[in-house]
Amino acid sequence: MVAPKVPYGETQSIAPGEDRREAFASWLTSKDNPYFAKSTVNRFWSYFFGRGIIDPVDDIRAGNPPSNPALLDALTARFVADGHDVRKLIRYLVLSRTYQLSIVPNRWNEDDLVNFSHSLPRRLSAEQMLDSIAMATGRPLQFSNLPDGLRAAQLPDGMVAGNDFLTLFGRPKRQSACECERSSNVTLSHALNLINGKTLGDCVNHSDNRFAKLVAEQPDDLKVIEEIYLSCLCRLPTSKELNSIRLGPGAQRLEGAQDLAWALINSPAFLFNR
């Protein structure tokens, strides 16, 4: 039997009967392990800013240096001092000035893609997108053999549950340990699915969704349009937007509401985190 050891670290002595996984976990999360904290901080940063301070996040090596070493070191030290508390890390990241920056660049930073001088829009992940569609249209999701209303982000395991929409939009199958298994691009198949696919089509056209209720209960077209903007983009329409949209008379009113919701959901303002 080969004695267990960790890469580039001290060989652990494991008493008979002791769980080797526990020994590994305590080595991994030890304050003396310089790799774990740095990699974790960098990974969480990439979730919120669309790009790691070292990028790609799975390629940490001397030949691929961080864009801002001082920032990464400071975050790493703080994360270690906080006892590897992920919640504290997230709170710190999202309260930062950097996180509040707009996606609108100015003339001096518009070419910058690596220094976080302005925010970079990120396409919603597969789960975020599906959950957002369900939320905006008021149609709870249904996954086979799982409780109704479960959100896609709550699905237990990438290998078992899910649906074609999640696969198409790049939810990883958890076959590899690489962050790159999740895709976040936009392609012809995605556009095809959002335009003509079952998922969004069924949610928008369902007879028991937010828009059907809204049109039945709210006689004022302007209020209907406002509600649709609120539910899809979390903001009221500008007066210009409000003035340029008409729902149509009589039976066309519901179609008009559905079409507007469909258009807002297909706009980059919905599809991207910004």
């Binding site: 829009p121 556009a191 003509n196 949209i245 706009s267 910004r274």
Partner: peptide, 26 residues
Amino acid sequence: AVNDAMPEMEKAVEKYALDRYYQKAF
């Protein structure tokens, strides 16, 4: 029309070539 009303958003996602994919899909 919806997208034209949000030009800064369109510009920020320019590199994803959404217009092109959507036009093709349509």
